[in-house]
Design a protein around this nucleic acid. Structure first.
Lengths: 154, 154
DNA sequence: GCGGTTTTGTTAGTAAAGCATACAATCTTC
DNA sequence: GAAGATTGTATGCTTTACTAACAAAACCGC
């Protein structure tokens, strides 16, 4: 598989395996004179979650004990931005921080039971979205699109 | 051609023809656990313009006397958001507002000479971007992508 | 024509995302 | 051990986008 935009800095020896393309949550494509826009925040809005927050829950759920810096790197956020999002999810009781045992600087992020629950609900929203996608595009087309995306990296 | 997201409310009798897909300025596709992201703001940054501002200039340039509400509708912005962007471009001398003669509520938006000049420069940036696109995707793929986009509407 | 409703533009306030900076704690390197 | 790099944190700023409220103009039913 071609190097994807999600796996370009896999230099950590003990880094968990990220990088599978699980599905398209939403997209936003801007043409020269406008934006073709499909926004799925509304879909998650019923859960009171933004796309970014769902991405964070998803990533922690599939990679427990991930650090904030790793999380930010995967989701293209700097440390400050990561802080605000992690803080908010922690305040809502969806995740907890622990000191990493191997590296005292790092936080080790874990979902709480409430966080797992929220992620499950979000995944159901994503399934609905995939139904929407499939109503407009064939599975071959979606696959082709995702494959094309994997060719995009800085 | 299938109804596109850019032409869904063509109820105005004297509405100018929108809807041609002129080129992809940038896109941002969010996967469930992250974002594949390509941001072309940097390309326009040399001009001191954002993607949105370029879209506004482009749309006014190709549709003089467009109203703010129409502009916002095309670019998926509400009235307040449209205001701030139009205000900033007006402050920079790139466009001017006139009272619409046919409807006293509406503003009629026009590019100034400086605005036309800025748009020309932005179009050159877009051409450079298209070269970038073509280096990663075949022209068939780009065509297919744009065609798929045209199938996206609410 | 008149009164109520809708549309359009405007302003103000708010929230989120993102960034830079500064700082403290920890790790790494020499 | 000292110097430098990494990670998390706190603060402040900017941009984007939204809601709510308001005014002026247009529209609609009568």
């Amino acid at each position: 598989m071609a190097q994807s935009a999600l796996t370009e800095d896999n230099s950590d020896t003990d880094a968990p395996e990220f990088g599978e393309l699980d599905g398209i949550v939403g997209f936003h494509i801007r043409l020269a004179h406008g934006a073709v826009y499909r926004h799925f925040t509304e879909t998650f809005a019923a859960l009171g979650l933004t796309q970014k927050q769902v991405s964070v829950l998803w990533l922690i759920g599939s990679n427990p004990a991930v650090s904030q810096i790793e999380l930010g790197s995967r989701l293209r956020m700097d440390r400050a931005t990561t802080m605000t999002i992690v803080n908010r999810l922690q305040e809502r009781g969806y995740l907890r921080r622990e000191k990493s045992s191997s590296d005292g600087r790092k936080q080790s992020l874990h979902l709480t039971d409430d966080g797992e629950e929220a992620l499950e609900q979000a995944k159901r929203c994503i399934e609905e979205h995939e139904a929407w996608l499939k109503s407009r595009f064939t599975s071959d087309e979606v696959e082709k699109l995702v494959e094309m995306l994997s060719r995009i990296h800085e």
